[in-house]
Design a protein around this nucleic acid. Sequence first.
DNA 1: TAGATTGTTAATCGATTAACAATC
DNA 2: TAGATTGTTAATCGATTAACAATC
Lengths: 210, 210
Amino acid sequence: MKKQKVSSAVIRRLPRYYRHLTDLYLAGVVRISSSALGKSMNLTASQIRQDLSCFGEFGQQGYGYNVESLRDEIAEILGMNQKHTAVILGVGNLGRALMENFHFDRSGFTLTAAFDVDPNLIGKSVSDVQVHPVEELERYLRETSVSVGVLTVPRAAAAPMSERLVAGGVKGIWNFTNAELDMGRSGVVVENVHFADSLLALSYMISEAP
Amino acid sequence: MKKQKVSSAVIRRLPRYYRHLTDLYLAGVVRISSSALGKSMNLTASQIRQDLSCFGEFGQQGYGYNVESLRDEIAEILGMNQKHTAVILGVGNLGRALMENFHFDRSGFTLTAAFDVDPNLIGKSVSDVQVHPVEELERYLRETSVSVGVLTVPRAAAAPMSERLVAGGVKGIWNFTNAELDMGRSGVVVENVHFADSLLALSYMISEAP
DNA sequence: TAGATTGTTAATCGATTAACAATC
DNA sequence: TAGATTGTTAATCGATTAACAATC
């Protein structure tokens, strides 16, 4: 086991490994070699072995990797067993879509509360998660350990809300607004889901085509 | 103007440039140097100049870049003026959230139709876009030029739907399902929005923290 | 055992950064 | 003009690929 810094390119591939290994596992595949996995994921066998070597030795010469145990190892590496919690800020369409459709638990998270300003929503539950008035955010964060704040508020509310989350001690922010959040020296990690950036990248790629 | 291949790292930064320049423009900033832009985006001035040089010469020595015209140039590069069109497949929570909240037009797209299997939705309109029965997809694609199909269907429907989109001649697929689509030799571009991958990357980053 | 496949070291490739002449 | 800042070429850094001894 090494303790070198893991590059962000590797980090981005880990969830893909996890997803593919889960699919293989569910399909009943017991073992797989780096070259077979590489073929199915469009990576080189070398890259896969190199990536995994950042975290330990999970394979066996002449055999390859056990699908289930490699999947479990990667889950562990990703922190999926750490009982992370999340709260969601903003129960508009997108917030509700995440609450109703996204399986936080499959990523090792428990969604424990939602917050909104709309009096019509407060007190209601969405997918068994209660909507609180946003004024109660600070108290909630004080009384409950929350790993991640999910930002699905309007753009204008993104900066102030992120500051309140940081002050409340969250470790990460999952940002669905198209605001660029500045975490300064807080150490809080921001993961952006910028829909527009994604669509524009696609726009570029289809515009280039011959 | 060069005609070298543009790396995917550069392509991914283009929408960010566009977003930052738009913010600057709306804030009334007229000109900016690569070093000032770099500071605000956490990039080196060198990298910005190197990136832009893939597409042409947009600055002026001793002055920097005109914010508005650089923004417009990048919009052009991204294909935002090409009157791209999109249809959305699957009007569940996520599909509806995109239809109601995401401004396709701000990325240069027009959302022209939605498709679903649910008889209760068919015929209705969401944000002025009509929901059609999915059986009509082929006819619609034949009669209308559609650039991109937005996949917000359940995972199991992702593969067959993507095949129908490809057969119908779309140029790109914006995939919100966690299925990994294989476009084979079709030349159709897939842009994935994998929520779970994104959250797992965040999970890794907060788990590493000291 | 022989064949397969790992983990790791070395080689290559590509992307980022630095430097600087050109010039507004 | 002098100062600022570009576009581009060269230097550096990091990530990917190839090669191979170790070994199941």
